[in-house]
């Protein structure tokens, strides 16, 4: 690790005042410290926000929930209100990382974790995300974990979060505190920027913005929610493809679907065409397959990621079969209720 100054912030404004050129917030630190050890990230100052009051609670917010940025992944997945009203979120969090990591990793930090593209981690190889303009080694390299949507010629890296996929499917918003302005809210799907020609700029956050909370909208009672994750080993691995869906039925027909896909894009991938193709339809493999094919028209694959197209198609169909009741209810399919 390179040397750095350590500051423990007492207040949000105190923390914001310490941010700026080459400073970084630290909370759980599970991704940041890992990257600092291999000198992919070399902040000259760490601002510890874990002692700031008011960021550790999950509280009722109108009909939804406000999740403080420092709520750990473990706390959030086990929160009785989340389990009842937004089971997709519990499942997605529990699908990620390990028990130890989830005890440290925070809600805000999970959203801002960096890609696990092997070339981003390998400082001996060019990477436009680490050093803009240097080139992208992934283009001719080992590409199994790379994205197929939203990429550019400058970067093929995928966003690794499971939690963010659930939050995108649940239409959550991120609360951001700016030092010289009011708190603002950004829909989760608008938090992230596609790489374009600046893959180093990953979100709409300014250097002294701080994520203070995530807001979940009112739970949609009776929606059937599924998080399906495909990975190279049974546990503690990042997604090759994951699908989060919440389905509302109207008798035998699909009333509405909200859906996000993980492991395939620089952000949790949402495509309104999928939801349009499903609304009002009678569930069938053919209908689900057509919805997947609409989404896949946007896919840009390398030889190494061609497998993700059929994998995504099958994963989406499997998730929709379970959520619509076309397949017998499997473990991991939950019906949302209004929390007591």
């Amino acid at each position: 690790m390179r040397e750095f100054d350590y500051t423990r912030a007492e207040t949000l404004s105190g923390a914001a005042g310490q941010l700026g050129e080459n400073a970084s917030i630290i909370a759980g630190g599970t991704n940041l410290l890992d990257l600092m050890k291999i000198q992919v990230m070399t902040p000259s100052r760490l601002v510890d926000i874990t002692r700031i009051d008011g960021l550790r609670d999950v509280s009722e917010d109108g009909e939804g929930l406000r999740i403080g940025a420092l709520v750990t992944n473990s706390e959030l997945a086990a929160d009785p209100r989340v389990r009842e009203g937004w089971p997709l979120l519990s499942r997605a969090i529990l699908a990620g990382a390990s028990g130890q990591i989830r005890n440290k990793a925070t809600t805000g930090g999970n959203l801002l974790q960096r890609t696990r593209c092997p070339y981003f981690y390998d400082t001996a190889m060019p990477c436009n995300k680490r050093n803009p303009g240097e080139g992208c080694s992934a283009k001719e390299g080992d590409g199994r974990m790379l994205a197929i949507f939203g990429t550019s010629e400058h970067c093929l890296a995928a966003h690794p979060s499971d939690m963010a996929v659930a939050l995108a499917a649940l239409r959550a918003e991120v609360e951001i505190c700016a030092p010289h302005g009011d708190a603002r809210r950004v829909p989760i799907s608008e938090l992230y920027k596609l790489p374009g020609d600046r893959p180093d700029i990953e979100t709409v956050l300014a250097p002294d913005d701080i994520i203070t909370a995530v807001h979940l909208p009112a739970p949609q009672a009776d929606t059937r929610q599924v998080y399906k994750k495909v990975r190279d080993r049974a546990s503690y691995a990042f997604a090759l493809v994951s699908v989060g869906v919440a389905v509302a039925m109207d008798g035998d027909r699909i009333a509405s679907v909200s859906c996000a896909i993980g492991g395939v894009a620089p952000k949790p991938w949402t495509d309104p065409e999928i939801e349009k193709a499903l609304a009002g339809q009678t569930p069938s493999d053919e209908v689900f397959g057509q919805a997947a094919d609409k989404a896949l028209t946007q896919a840009r694959c390398q030889p190494d990621t061609e497998f993700k197209k059929p994998l995504l198609r099958r994963t989406l169909i499997a998730a929709l079969r379970e959520a619509t009741g076309l397949a017998a209810s499997a473990p991991g399919v939950e019906t949302a209720r209004i929390p007591a």
Binding site: Y6, G29, L46, G99, K104
Partner: peptide, 8 residues
């Protein structure tokens, strides 16, 4: 339980 290697 946490990974002490990832704790400052």
């Amino acid at each position: 339980r946490v990974n002490s290697c990832l704790c400052l």
